[in-house]
Amino acid sequence: MSEKKCEQQLNNFAVIMPAYNEAGRISSTIAGIRRITDKDIIVISDGSTDDTAEEAAAAGAKVLRLPFNLGYGAALQTGFKYALEKGYEFAVQMDADGQHEPSGIKELIEPVFRNEVDVVIGSRFLDKGNYKAPFVRRMGMYFFGFISSVITGRKITDPTSGFQALNRKIMEFYASDAYPVDYPDADVIIMLHRRGYRFKEVQVTMHNAAKRSMHGGIIKPMYYIFKMLLSIFVTLLRKEDKL
């Protein structure tokens, strides 16, 4: 590949950001990314009932508006489908609430650019970062981190991280029906492993976002644990997910 073509290809990435009612926060998140890169930012407003879409568009993002709330995973998948159609070679997925520090984008995308791995997952805990999660959430992360580590045979420190960089191959996988749009996290790492994709974790900084967690209440965390265990279990039973 000529150097110019390589350069061109490396430049071809988009930041994909699902957002649900993030008005008042999304502009500063986009401004933060703009300080790091001038690449396209695709915001998927997940049926937001506030001005999220308008704010994101005003801040210079390409905005996709879902007519109603589909949930985090489905919104994210919409972004991947769009990115594939538009021919982006690489993508960085991150949260819209400012939890993910944009300076991490560079560390995340570089191993994917160099074709060392297919996916890089930003971890809060690789070098014992300063991220403080509430106790129950921390236990959940630890528990699913442990399960993913046992199954993949390598240390997974942050299985719930939504801060990732990936190449087109993974975009295609994430855009397929095999992608669990209902809380994608530890089960996705196990699917990546079972399908033989190369991935690694890289230390990133995450801020304690002052947002209502998607795991709030009692029913939702219980359902989350049930869904994740079942999803991991059936993933292990599926032949198509086998190397």
Binding site: A178, D182, F226, L230, R238
Partner: peptide
């Protein structure tokens, strides 16, 4: 139910009450 979820005929969400 587990087999249906495995074959993606049934979403995890709908399997909960059955299981």
């Amino acid at each position: 139910i587990i087999e249906m979820v495995r074959r993606r005929k049934l979403a995890e969400e709908y399997s909960f009450l059955w299981l």
